[in-house]
């Protein structure tokens, strides 16, 4: 019984992280029907920068916002140089290659400058674990699922009731019409990538005390976040967060009753199966448009 609670709790932690990563993909996809495949690397960038700034003597309260801001600029650059020039409608795939390439370049650069050893960011909430129904968990870990839910509510309100949010969804559906409404489509695309990258960096920093920070930490997290977004159906934020949690819990159970290798095999296997059964995603709706 304790094991089940333990797996569920730690599953919600890692699943919350997948959910936040997936929400970044959702933001980009909603705006331009393309994503930064190096999005996992913005997590890495955020946590590596905050650790580097900490080493340089910058207090975390300043360093963390700086790291997030720098990652947002990274997102701007990705959109401008790797996505926009190569994204000309649904059949374009050039942006996949270019963003993956930039991610690999960033990983190599960080390995050289930051070092290959995994690091960790200290957190005052990682001191003593608290006990929930016999299972132990650090207070900091609980921040992850809580953040995922809070971010979902925030994003939902943003898209539902701000002009910027409405415009950021409109540009992907009908870019020409969006321009005719007075929306600067290019600017919106930039904003969406900056926001997604800032969110990614935030996720990285949030995870930095829990998981090991290294140049390659973003690879699997980015991939799983993308899978979660795809399985949920790219256009449904709530579904993305639910799927993220579910995938995290599933992973922990497989790991707990099996082993780590089995986790990836079964986890990805289930994902592929779901994708075959629900091509539009678990929560995706078919795009409706009568002509």
């Amino acid at each position: 019984m304790t094991a089940i609670v333990q797996y569920t709790l730690s599953g919600l932690v890692i699943g919350g992280l997948y959910a936040i990563v997936a929400l970044g993909f959702y933001i980009m996809w909603s705006a331009v029907r393309a994503v930064n495949f190096a999005h996992g690397d913005t997590l890495m960038l955020g946590s590596v920068l905050s650790i580097a700034l900490m080493w340089a003597g910058v207090p975390l309260i300043v360093g963390i916002p700086l790291a997030i801001a720098a990652s947002a600029v990274f997102g701007l650059l990705i959109e401008r140089i790797a996505v926009r020039p190569l994204n000309h409608g649904p059949s374009s795939v050039g942006w996949m290659l270019s963003t993956i390439a930039i991610g690999l370049m960033l990983e190599a650069f960080v390995t050289v400058t930051f070092g290959a050893d995994p690091r960790s960011l200290p957190s005052p909430l990682m001191g003593t674990p608290i006990s929930i129904a016999g299972a132990g968990i650090f207070p900091h870990e609980l921040l992850v699922p809580a953040s995922a839910v809070a971010l979902l509510a925030l994003l939902d309100g943003f898209y539902r009731s701000t002009m910027l949010g409405r415009a950021m969804r409109a540009i992907s559906q009908k870019p020409v019409a969006a321009g005719l409404m007075g929306i600067d489509v290019r600017r919106m695309a930039l904003i969406s990538f900056a926001a997604a990258s800032a969110l990614g960096a935030f996720a990285g920093i949030l995870a930095a005390p829990i998981i090991q920070v290294s140049a390659t930490m973003g690879l699997l997290l980015g991939l799983k976040g993308f899978l979660v977004a795809i399985i949920a159906g790219m256009s449904n934020a709530r579904g993305i967060v639910i799927t993220g949690f579910a995938y995290g819990v599933l992973e922990r159970f497989i790991e707990g009753f099996g082993n780590t290798a089995l986790r990836e095999v079964l986890g990805f296997g289930v994902m592929i199966l779901l994708l075959l059964m629900f091509p539009n995603g678990l929560f995706g709706q078919r795009e409706v448009n009568k002509v």
């Binding site: 409109a170 559906q173 009908k174 409706v288």
Partner: peptide
């Protein structure tokens, strides 16, 4: 062709 924002 109207070009309404179909999902909104």
């Amino acid at each position: 062709g109207r070009q309404v924002f179909a999902e909104q």
